[in-house]
Nucleic acid binder design. Structure first.
Lengths: 332, 332
DNA sequence: TTGTATGCGTTATCAT
DNA sequence: ATGATAACGCATACAA
C-alpha cells in the first residue's frame, strides 16, 4: 500500500505538503498540488483507514449483533441496515449471537474496545428469557450508544425501533371477526417467550375479549413435528374457522394441513401469517400476511443510531414502525 | 476508554512497563505485574484495537461481499463464515452488492485501504453477466487475498470453494430416471445466466443424453408470475412426470401447482428442488431437495482464506463441497 | 527490572 | 508556499 511517506520521498517534498495537497489545502501551490495528485493517482494511493481511525478516534463502523440471519426477518433487517450504512459512509461488523447469551456478551465485549462507534442489536432469546441485562448496561455505561430493534429490553435506556406487535395482531384479529365473521380463531405461536411473542398474543387476546370470543392458542415451543401438531389440533377442533400464525413458517404449514383435511381456503378457514419477501409465493392459495417492514426497520435503526453518534444533544427515542396487513387477493 | 498512558500515569511508571506487564513479560517483576493488572482490571482497560491494527499492520478482519442475504443460501453461508471467523478471532465486515456491479466495485474499493486482511465473496449477477473482472484483478494485484465461493470467476487466480453443481444435478436426474423410471423430466430454472445455473443445467442435460431422453427446460427469468407460468406449462405438457427446480422457490411452487392440477405427488410426478434449513417444512408432501452444505461452504471459505493469509507458502486451491440428495420420506 | 525512544500512517499546529 | 513536529495508542528494540 502506498503511503504519504512514499509519495513524499518520490516527489522530494515533505509529508505534510503531500497531505495538504491531497486535501486541497489552499496553502499549497497549484503546481505541486497537481504534481502530487498525479503521482497519487498513478500509484493508486489511498489513505490508510486504520490510521485515520486512530487519529480521529472514530471508526465510522457500527457493530451489528443479530440472533440469527437465516430467519428472513433478520436477513431483511440486515439488508436495510447495510443500505443505510453505505449511504452514510459507514461499515458494519456483523456478529451472530445464535440466540445465546454468551455469544452476545462476547461480541459486545470484543467490539467495545474501539472497534465500533455504536451497536445495533436485537437481543438473544436466551438473554430475554433469563432477563440478563448487565452486559447491555455495561456498554451503555462505557458511553457507547446502543440501538435496539424488535426485541427490546425496556430497562435499558437507549434508542429503540420496534414493531407494533400488539396493534398488528389486534387489527388482524379484529379483521377476521368483523369482516370475515370468524368466531373460532386459532393462534399458533412458537415464540411465546419473546417480548414480541407476548405482545402479539396480547393483541390477539384483547381483540377476542372485546368481541366476547374465546381464545384458542396452540403453542409449539420447539415442537419437533410442526405439521403433525397442527394437523392433530385441527382434526380434534373442527370448529376452528381461522388461523393466525405469528411466525413466518407455521402459517404456510397450516394452509397445507387445512387442504389435507379437505377444507377450503378461504371459504372454510381463513389464514393469516407473518411474512416478508417471498412468503406469499410459497403457499397456494396465497397466504394473507402481516408484513413487517423489516427493511425499513433496519434503515431507520441505522439512521437513528448515526444521529445519536453525530448529534451533540441527541435525545433518546423509540420509533414504532407499523406493519401492514397484506390480504391475499383470493380472500373474499 | 482507559489507555496505557493513563495507567502509567496513575501508577507512576512508564508506559512500556505497563505494556510489558499486561503482556506477561518476564522482564517485569511479579509485584509490579500484579499491581498493573489489578488497576487495569479495575478500570476495565482494554487495548485499543485500532492502535493494535496500525502497529501490527493487520486488522484480523475479513471483508465479506455477498450478492444478497435474503436468499437463504447466502444467509446460511454467512452463518458459517461468522462462526469460523469467531473461532479464529476474526471479525467480518459485511457488504451487500445487491447483485449490482457498481456496489461490488465500491465495496472492494472502499475496504481495500487497509480495512481488511482479505475478502470472501460471491460475485454479483451483473458482473457475471457482463463478464467484468477488472475490479477483481485489481484487488489480486494489490496483494489482498480473495476467496470466491459458489459463483466463481475462472479467470481470476484465487482460492475457491464451490459446489458440485454439475454432479449434483447429474445424479439427481439419474436418480429420477433409473430409480423412479421417469421419462419426461422438466428443469425449472431462473438462474440461467449464472455460472452455477449453467453448470446445473449441463449436469441435467448430460444425464438425459446418457439415457437417450429429451430435455424439457422452463426458463423463468424475472418472470412476474411464477405460479401462472408453471401452471400453464404443466397443463400444456401433460407428459411431465418429474420436475427438478434449481432454486429454492420454484420447487415448492411446482408442488402446489401439481396438486392444483389434481395430480398426485410422488405417484404421478416426482419433484426435486434446492433447499436448506426450513425448505422441506414449507411443502406438503415434503419436497425432495438437493441440499447444499451452505454452512460448511462458509466455514471452509473462512478457514481457507485465513490459511492463505497466515501461511507463508500458501498454495491456491479449489475445494468442492459435495451436495446431498435428501429424498423426502414419502418418495417411493 | 525498569525506562527511553521510535515507528505504524495520518492530520493539525506551528514554524520558516 | 513549504516543512518540521507532535499526537492518536500500542509494541518493541535498545539503554540504563
Amino acid at each position: 500500500m502506498t503511503t504519504l511517506k512514499e509519495l513524499a520521498k518520490l516527489l522530494d517534498i515533505s509529508i505534510s505538503t503531500v497531505s495538504k495537497a491531497l486535501n486541497d489545502s489552499h496553502e499549497i501551490s497549484e503546481s505541486t498540488r497537481t504534481r502530487v495528485k498525479e503521482l497519487a493517482a498513478e500509484l493508486n494511493y489511498r489513505p490508510n483507514r486504520i490510521a485515520q481511525q486512530l487519529k480521529n478516534n472514530k471508526t465510522k463502523t457500527i457493530g451489528v449483533i443479530l440472533p440469527t440471519v437465516t430467519n428472513p426477518f433478520f436477513a431483511e433487517v440486515l439488508h436495510g441496515i447495510e443500505m443505510a450504512a453505505t449511504n452514510n459512509d459507514y461499515d458494519i461488523i456483523v456478529c451472530l449471537s445464535n440466540e445465546t447469551l454468551h455469544k452476545e456478551e462476547r461480541s459486545l465485549e470484543l467490539l467495545s474496545n474501539g472497534s465500533v462507534d455504536g451497536f445495533i442489536m436485537a437481543v438473544a432469546r436466551e438473554g430475554q428469557v433469563k432477563k440478563q441485562t448487565k452486559h447491555l448496561q455495561a456498554i451503555i455505561n462505557s458511553k457507547i450508544p446502543i440501538l435496539m430493534f424488535d426485541r427490546v429490553v425496556n430497562e435499558i435506556e437507549c434508542d429503540k425501533v420496534i414493531v407494533d406487535d400488539f396493534q398488528s395482531l389486534y387489527e388482524a384479529t379484529q379483521y377476521l371477526i368483523e369482516k370475515e365473521h370468524r368466531k373460532h380463531i386459532l393462534l399458533v405461536s412458537n415464540i411465546e417467550e419473546l417480548s414480541v411473542g407476548k405482545l402479539r398474543t396480547e393483541g390477539y387476546s384483547k381483540a377476542l375479549k372485546d368481541h366476547n370470543l374465546k381464545p384458542h392458542i396452540l403453542k409449539l415451543d420447539n415442537a419437533i413435528d410442526v405439521e403433525e401438531n397442527i394437523y392433530n389440533y385441527l382434526s380434534k377442533n373442527k370448529e376452528i374457522d381461522a388461523i393466525i400464525s405469528i411466525d413466518h413458517i407455521t402459517g404456510i404449514v397450516a394452509i397445507n394441513m387445512i387442504k389435507k383435511l379437505g377444507k377450503n381456503i378461504p371459504k372454510d378457514v381463513s389464514v393469516i401469517g407473518f411474512g416478508y419477501e417471498h412468503t406469499q409465493l410459497l403457499s397456494s392459495p396465497k397466504i394473507s400476511i402481516i408484513h413487517q417492514k423489516a427493511h425499513k426497520i433496519g434503515e431507520m435503526s441505522m439512521k437513528l443510531l448515526i444521529d445519536s453518534i453525530s448529534t451533540e444533544d441527541h435525545k433518546l427515542q423509540t420509533i414504532v414502525v407499523p406493519s401492514e396487513l397484506n390480504l391475499s387477493g383470493s380472500t373474499k
